[in-house]
Each structure stands twice: as C-alpha cells, then as structure tokens.
C-alpha cells in the first residue's frame, strides 16, 4: 500500500519564554493508504499536537511531513488551507458545528472554500443531501445544531468531513462526549468509511474505541512509546 502520509522526526516546541515545552520530540510514522490508526496515551503526551500537525493546522518546529507524496511541512497559510480543504476531513470531540447554520448548511460549509471558489452546483447540493441521508439525518436537514443530540451532531460532522471527498479523516476524540451506545454507532460509521478506502487517524482515550482501529499507537512524553496491530502481538515502534 502506498503511504497516504508520512512524518519524519516530527518535533513541536512551544517557546513560553522562560521554558520551552517540547510537545513532540521526534515522531516518525507512516500511514499507509487505507490505514485506520488510533493514537492513545496519557493526557499531555502530545496526541492532539500530532493530530493538529497532520491536519495542517500548524507547522512543525523540526522534521518533515509528507502528505500524498508532497512535503507540506513548510507550506504557507494559503497552501495549508487548500490542503485542509481538499485532502483532509476533520471530526472533533466537541462536534464544532456552526450554530446559526442548518444541518445541510453545515455539511456544505467546506464547499465555500474550494480552490478557485467555484459556484455551488446542483450536483454539490445532491451530494450534501446524499451524505445527510448516509449518516441518517435525511429528515433533519433544516434543523439547527441545538435541536440535535450529541450523536446526531457528530453525524453531521462526519458528513461535513466527507463533503470534499478527502483522502484522510482526522478525528480528535470523536466519541469523547458520547455515551457508549452512540460511540459505537459513530465508530461503525468510521469503520465503514475505512472499508471504502479512506485513511483514518483517530485520537482516543478509550481502549475499546481504539479496538475499532487496525493499529494502535501509544504516545508518551512527545514520542511514540508503543505500537500494536489489532489481533497481533505487541511489536514496539517500527521506525526506531
């Protein structure tokens, strides 16, 4: 499988004046296309920092990040924004829908920022409708986020992450705010997406959620401490 993303010696330091916080201290990882990875680890171990870098929301202090064969580690804001829009889909713990928008408008939001700003066509609208149905919200199109349950809001977020047909879906604790039944529903949805061929990188605290993934990576103090493959023996970090 050709890698969807690779990081080499990725470091992120926060210079707070008197001290420098090293949130990531050299992470080397490969995410083959179609992979499903769960990142685990204690609070403060650098999981979100890594995911934000993978999501092009920030630039590493050191190291390289190759996304789809292109080095994006030193891209400027405009280029990174286009990468986020075209190649990546985000799912957040807090759903992060726009409160004044309806379900359908929230799903369509990434279309506003496509390269060259093409007008929204009926094909686009049909796609948004289809995605809304796919996540089971075909009858809630005109509802606003506050009228939906947490699980329903997260489904809107999943549909929104898919609207631009990204290669990689990044999810930071997507079930962190949900009960276990709803969590499982969302995880079934992600698993189905992975089966369609999408690469998924997910941060989670819960071992049973991590079990949905093919690989589990455990972080500690800004480095990869351990890696397991579901159903296989623990074989440590492969790139050391």
């Amino acid at each position: 499988m050709k890698p969807a993303a690779q990081v080499f010696d990725l470091q992120k330091h926060y210079d707070l004046g008197p001290i420098v916080v090293k949130a990531l201290r050299g992470v080397t990882l490969e995410f083959p296309s179609g992979d499903f990875v769960a990142i685990m680890g204690a609070s403060g171990s650098g999981k979100s920092t890594l995911l934000n870098l993978l999501g092009g929301l920030d630039r590493p202090t050191h190291g390289r990040y190759i996304l789809g064969g292109v080095d994006v580690s030193q891209m400027n804001d405009v280029e990174l924004s286009e990468i986020r829009n075209q190649m990546l889909g985000f799912i957040f713990q807090a759903y992060n829908l726009i409160p004044q928008y309806t379900v359908l408008e929230n799903i369509a939001l990434p279309l506003q920022y496509r390269r060259g700003y093409p007008p929204i066509t009926t094909a686009d609208e049909d796609r948004c409708l289809e995605l809304a149905r796919k996540v089971g919200l075909g009858d809630r199109l005109d509802h606003r986020p506050f009228q939906l349950s947490g699980g329903q809001q997260q489904r809107v977020a999943v549909a929104r992450a898919l609207v631009n047909d990204p290669q990689i879906i990044l999810a930071d604790e997507p079930t962190g705010n949900l009960d276990s039944a709803t969590s499982n529903e969302i995880m079934e949805m992600l698993t189905a997406l992975n089966r369609e061929g999408r690469t998924i990188v997910m941060v989670t605290h819960e071992p049973d959620i991590a079990e949905y993934a093919r690989r589990q990576i455990v972080m500690r103090d800004g480095v990869v401490a351990r890696e397991t493959v579901s159903g296989m023996a623990d074989h440590g970090a492969p790139f050391h």
Binding site: G55, L57, D77, V78, S81, E82, R84, N85, Q86, F90, N96, L97, I98, P99, L109, P110, Q112, Y113, R114, R160, N164
Partner: peptide, 16 residues
C-alpha cells in the same frame, strides 16, 4: 472565535 476556528480547519484562508 470558535466559528472562525471551524472555518479555518475546513479550509478558509486568512483572506476568506
């Protein structure tokens, strides 16, 4: 602010 963050994550440039 939150809305701005969401839009940026979904691909809005500073100019947008």
């Amino acid at each position: 602010t939150r809305e701005i963050g969401i839009r940026r994550a979904l691909g809005a440039k500073q100019r947008d």
